[in-house]
Design a protein around this nucleic acid. Structure first.
Lengths: 217, 217
DNA sequence: ATAATGCATATTGGATCCAATATACAATAT
DNA sequence: ATATTGTATATTGGATCCAATATGCATTAT
């Protein structure tokens, strides 16, 4: 394969471009809960026809980001407190299991990258960055597990609660606390203490859920 | 709402009808791994146009049942042994957690229904029924947990390995063993022994994985 | 005044049409 | 003979068009 080659069959279709843009907009909270997604309007925004828009919406629907009613269209799907709480519990379960498996296989390079995200998180002053850095920190550790299916599902559940997660970090003393907990998790990983890393990760996630529920009350 | 009423907006669209039929065909193994899904051909089969077919295929893609390449189309996505193994581990993790939570809330009626499925499974001589009865048995127990998100994900991961699960039950002495294990799980649930039910469920799933990997080798 | 009806408009679901790409195969050059 | 080019066909992606349904508003009956 030449260096300048580009595989056209792997380039993004209009549908996936629209899908990813809408998903990001929902994750970021730019599109509020219950807001209807008008196919025509979105099509004009992306300078395309309604067909790719409809495919994007069906993708969002399957992943739970929007809910649609026949002939009425799609609206951004909100998460009730109890729904969000359940997803946090799910994350604690799965992420705890994944990091336990990953610890023995995290390369020094990955640990260094994780430390980089950790430090960037701790020194960042931009609340909009926090969510991403938090996510990259954790993901860098999980990724060594090579549990592709688990990772995909973790990513999806993170997407679903991303707004709440960011809200939790931003409000209260979430960031300071997350920082301490990240330090402890990272240290456990560096020392190869798998079950400790798992327990700390679970506590980290469940703690976030608790303060979140507290704040939202 | 009148008794004869029917909510048209809740009736199924062509896309979802096609989606569910194709998904079932893939789950049942009627469509073999790698088999291409021709939009035109499917459209004719369902007496509709390609548009709903394409939406159905994008739904299948999001859930991992098919993989598509731009301009080349979709093929039924196979599962490698290691992929299947990972999904069984995932199921053990999640189903174990869910039943542990469910046990205290399983109503006597649900226990009776579960016992019904258990007995139907144990006396059934039709291998095609086994998969469904197995699933309904487990699901009846999990359902008391009211962990909607967990249940949805369990269903999806079950769908993904359904073929392998059936193969495992059918081959070797899978059915006799499943039957014994079901009896133990049911008994633990009836006695309210949550952590025992969880351990038995995990062992049930991981055991199935082990014999499956053995057979496929 | 209020509720039911009818009509106009907006929006979605699906069908058809066109463009872009893939694929198979024939023709050609070396 | 083999590799390359060109061409015809099949298939997908996207655009446009039409039908079905929803929605808002005016009209009308009581």
């Amino acid at each position: 394969m030449k260096s300048y080659a580009v595989d056209i069959s792997k380039s993004a279709s209009a549908a996936t471009i629209v899908f990813e843009a809408l998903r990001q907009a929902i994750i970021d909270g730019e599109l509020e809960d219950g807001m209807p997604l008008r196919q025509d309007e979105i099509a004009k925004t992306f300078n395309t026809s309604r067909i790719p828009v409809r495919e994007a919406i069906t993708m969002l629907e399957v992943q739970g980001f929007v809910s649609t009613q026949r002939f009425k269209g799609a609206v951004v799907a909100g998460l009730s407190r109890s729904d969000a709480s359940e997803i946090f519990e799910f994350r604690a379960l799965v992420e705890g299991a994944v990091i336990e498996r990953a610890v023995s296989d995290i390369s020094p390079e990955a640990l260094a990258r994780a430390r980089g995200f950790f430090e960037a998180f701790s020194t960042s002053t931009d609340p909009m960055e926090w969510g991403d850095l938090n996510r990259e920190f954790h993901y860098e550790l999980y990724n060594a597990s090579e549990l592709k299916y688990h990772l995909k599902i973790i990513n999806n559940s993170l997407d679903r609660v991303d707004r709440y997660l960011r809200a939790q970090i931003t409000m209260t003393d979430g960031k300071a606390r997350a920082n301490e907990e990240h330090a402890a998790i990272l240290e456990a990983c560096e020392k190869g203490q798998a079950s400790l890393a798992s327990d700390l990760t679970k506590a980290h996630i469940l703690g976030a859920r608790d303060t979140l529920l507290e704040v939202l009350k």
